[in-house]
Design a binder for these strands. Structure first.
Lengths: 341, 341
DNA sequence: CAACAAATTTTTCGCGCGTAAAATTTAGAG
DNA sequence: CTCTAAATTTTACGCGCGAAAAATTTGTTG
């Protein structure tokens, strides 16, 4: 193998004796050419270092094999983890994933959407900011690109995949009520629909059990949940503002902050004897198992969400099993019992 | 504004009465055309919805305005955070950042490098896997693309930007020795050069203070540091294998795991009375301030690293201030004193 | 060996834009 | 109003490849 760098398909064609259009077919789908030809191409490829020019390919193809992925905040472990899974599955499926993050800001989300659209992707997986999104912009994007929305269910795109808050929240509310004082609900900033749904689900679950809902709203509208949990937590503990010694946080990051607040205030957290309060979260973030104490929470099925989002998207791209209406897939959460509640 | 979608520059040229080459100039640099023309273009742009075709642009430009960013593990908060800053600064500088993650795997790193190279980026910021990298592959990449290496100093590329482990580690070793029992060193899996440098720096610092270094090596070679910290920590505590009640972890994620281990074993962590052990980390990860107890650590200057990496890269791209030899910039760490040590 | 379909090659065109050179217009100074 | 340099337009070409149609070769079947 000379490893000689080849720049164009034309060159490779001359050097290998295979016609350029045939090479073109090969690179679009190796199985589309005769087996013997496939081998000849691959022999040539071992000899020479060549990759089709991405730009030329994408300019001419009617449909690219790019999959756009947009998340609201990539530094959030939930999204980091789910993007990791999506990327891997994209590659395995022969697509080219390209990741954007809105960094929590509307303007950047719009930018990313605009850039993404100009990439003419085969499809897109979008977790919108939610309340912070320009719905019209997301809508226009989804009109132009086959789009599956995940995590944050804004009514856009051909399908939605996410968690069933109305199943998962009651699950943990039931557990907490059964094992101790009914929980109050420590709400995350309402950055997206999940925030509101979780609150509603909490209230419903509490009422169904005959308890009065106790919702604690927090100031702030950004994605620094831990900080909010810590600062608000300290304030609440100092002012004795917690209506219950059991706190259900609307996500794990908030719970991590509250855990830190309790620690700072010398409150022992857990369900054992000598514990002053119980704290539970939601999502089973990658780090929830490493908090002190380890966090009791409800898991979201990351892998299932990633897998399902992509398979629905691929179906839409291929025109298979395309439902008439917007399809919503909700995965159930599972109770993850640890020491914190 | 009609918002009519325009597909080609040709169309826009006809509709606006401005010649296509002039439009082309405008899109490459708005300031390169006469002020009055600039305004005419911008008026037309308000009227019509048009963006130059990315693929056509990049195919023809000698140099793209793409900046490739490759990190070993995007789900690591350190990288998530630094990527966030780099992305933002790229955009502000008029470049187009595109992020890749190796997900901790050599094969994916090579893939990303290959894809990135075929994107013909103006330059790249690469944090290699380190020990897990195919140095030859990274080398070949750096030969083809102006490359600044950060975080993990493999001897490749035109420049390196990172932290000065030989300054930061002694800083915290001194502190720990001054305020209590000299620390043992809980080593991260040697995934990259930082791992070894930190161990060396620790040993040197201890010897300088007249103490015997105590290094604890751990099994494992993956990026799940918290898990390793937890599992190894539990094992060490159970077997009384910790040679000191003060443990310096080679990074915060490991420390977070060890903190969880101590909690599980009922060991109180901190420097106050009644504390059984002290734990310190390195990096000042975004979540280090929310652990229980909050983690004493040495900060890496994320923003400075991001800023410097980019400015060096831009200089190289523009051909300004290009040093003759590979240039290394090391930032100093700062002691971040919290409750854990 | 004839016959036929599949695979391949040949030929030709087009994608949307960058770029260079030559021709023309514009703006500002005198 | 004239002159000159800068800006702009015109013209022409090329980038590397996808795609379609027609011509040719290949492999398989009877």
């Amino acid at each position: 193998m000379s490893g000689k760098k080849i720049k164009t398909m034309e060159e490779l064609s001359q050097l290998s004796g295979i016609s350029r259009p045939t090479l073109s077919k090969y690179f679009q789908d190796p199985k589309s050419v005769r087996e013997s030809t496939k081998e000849r191409v691959e022999t040539a490829l071992e000899e020479y270092d060549y990759r089709p020019n991405i730009f030329a390919v994408n300019q001419n193809r009617k449909l690219t094999r790019t999959i756009g992925i947009l998340v609201p905040y990539l530094a959030d472990p939930f999204f980091a983890e789910i993007v990791r899974m999506i990327e891997r599955q994209c590659i395995d499926a022969g697509y080219w994933p390209i990741v954007f993050s809105a960094h929590g800001e509307k303007e950047m989300e719009n930018n990313a959407l605009s850039t993404l659209e100009s990439l003419r992707p085969a499809g897109a997986l979008v977790a919108p900011l939610g309340r912070g999104s320009d719905i019209d912009v997301v809508q226009r994007f989804a009109d132009a690109v086959p789009t599956v929305v995940f995590d944050s269910n804004v009514p856009v795109g051909q399908a939605f995949v996410g968690s069933d808050n109305f199943q998962s929240i009651p699950l943990i509310v039931d557990y907490l009520c059964r094992t101790g004082e009914p929980p109050c609900f420590f709400e995350m900033p309402p950055v997206n629909p999940n925030a509101n749904k979780r609150r509603e689900a909490y209230c419903l679950a509490m009422e169904r059990l005959g308890h009065d809902p106790m919702v604690i709203q927090v100031a702030g509208s950004d994605w620094g949940f831990e900080r909010i949990g810590l600062e608000e937590g300290v304030r609440l503990i100092d002012s004795r503002g917690l209506p219950s010694n059991t706190v259900l946080c609307s996500n794990d990051r908030l719970a991590i902050g509250l855990l830190a607040a309790a620690y700072e205030k010398g409150l022992r957290v857990g369900h054992g004897p000598g514990c002053a309060m119980r704290i539970a979260g939601h999502d089973d973030h990658p780090w929830a198992q490493f908090t002190c104490p380890p966090l009791t929470t409800v898991s979201q099925d990351y892998k299932a969400i990633a897998r399902r989002s992509l398979s629905v998207l691929f179906d839409i791209i291929k025109g298979e099993n395309v439902p008439d209406e917007r399809e919503e897939t909700l995965f159930e959460g599972k109770l993850v019992l640890r020491a914190s509640a």
